[in-house]
Design a protein around this nucleic acid. Structure first.
Lengths: 217, 217
DNA sequence: AAACTGCCAACTGTCGACAGTTGACAACTC
DNA sequence: GAGTTGTCAACTGTCGACAGTTGGCAGTTT
């Protein structure tokens, strides 16, 4: 069962998954400290693998390490949101451009499908309005076929999710976002890299502005 | 002395610095494995801190982890170079745009200084032709004032340095690069974000092409 | 001779314990 | 009473040792 199970994933790897989940869902709230011995006991593992998991999540930006003090879940901060979205804009605009020139017909099918699902969920008032937004951006970077950019986009989006959990913000201007997505898909379908980049930039700047709003109450 | 010196930097932190140096200089050649016990003994530390150092460098892309096999210095690979430069282009073009709108007069002084020093070193035939190239891009991203982008650029440039060490390539088209740099500084001085981005893209595509050349012999 | 099988050494993954540092509380001084 | 200093518990940083896995080599079979 659980004691000696290094058969598919190391204890450190499992700890990474569990901790990531707990951090992203806000189960471990922003600003709080992660106690090594306490969490290790709770997970039923030793401090060694847990430390590795903590360092790994720190390298992803989901934890901040303070020497001799431990690991903390980073707090939401206006400057941080701004800096993060500058990075996200650089990466996703480039991804949009690449997607416009590299997308296959299958990519277009997937993108249309996600957009349609978004509107379906929106009408029926589904519980996780961000799920399909994430899926859309995920599908887009796959269409860009640039593994290193994709890797970084995933990390940045993860941090955005963390910020959102700290904000607990209300349903966003989802309608505007969905319109952006549609326009983005059209530009990509047309192979119009320049337009795809511009639309993406506008889209992200809108999302960023909205997050800044819900931060300052 | 050396045995108990956690006064300024942890053993893991010191190990990171030493290992990074050895990997980047090719002292530990690409493709080779990093033996935990062996290196730990050589550094005079235990396996714990060394493991943390290895994982850290792996998160920077300077090592590749294989479960139950250990850490390896990644090999040079054409696809990898291409993917890496797509990421670098996305990041540095964005940085160039931001620098064009945010640079201070002091930034311009520094950029001009680096360019002048490059030409000076070039004429006298200095040993490290890449040193000032790195310094230029470093100065540029500082002028962009976007901490997250700067962070990622640094990591990508580090990986490029690693690739170069694996290539052991000859003096590059340094003259063309210096011209690019001058043109870049001019665009940034003029506040012309669009041109800065275009010049940067051309510059990086040239550098990338050159690396691909020296790979395929 | 080639291919398969079983064994073995080397190494990674994990654990429990010790040492050093940090922040906080309490006692003391002015 | 406010500020300072001494003490202490809690936690991180580090270490050495054990267990499980991997790749290779020797021996065997066809």
């Amino acid at each position: 069962m659980t004691p000696p199970t290094p058969l598919h994933l190391s204890l450190a790897g499992q700890a990474v998954d569990v901790l990531r989940e707990q951090v992203l869902t806000g189960e471990i709230p922003p600003g709080s400290r992660v106690n090594e011995v306490e969490v290790a006991q709770k997970l039923g593992i030793s401090r060694g693998p847990l430390r590795e998991a903590i360092r790994h999540l720190a390298s992803e930006g989901l934890l901040t390490l303070v020497p001799h003090r431990g690991a903390f879940v980073p707090d939401a901060d206006a400057d941080e949101v701004k800096a993060l979205f500058e990075l996200r804009t650089a990466l996703e605009c480039a991804a949009a451009e690449l997607a416009a020139s590299r997308r296959t017909d299958m990519d277009l099918v997937r993108l249309h499908e996600v957009c349609a699902a978004s509107r379906r969920d929106y009408k029926t008032g589904q519980p996780f309005p961000y799920r399909l937004d994430l899926a859309f951006h995920q599908t887009l970077i796959e269409a860009a076929r640039s593994p290193r950019i994709a890797e970084q986009v995933r990390l940045v989006q993860q941090r955005v999710v963390l910020l959102r959990s700290a904000l607990a913000d209300d349903p966003p201007h989802q309608h505007a976002s969905m319109d952006d997505h549609d326009e983005l898909v059209k530009a990509i379908a047309d192979g119009d890299a320049a337009k795809a980049s511009i639309v993406m930039r506008r889209h992200l700047s809108r999302v960023c502005a909205q997050m800044m709003m819900s931060m300052s109450h």
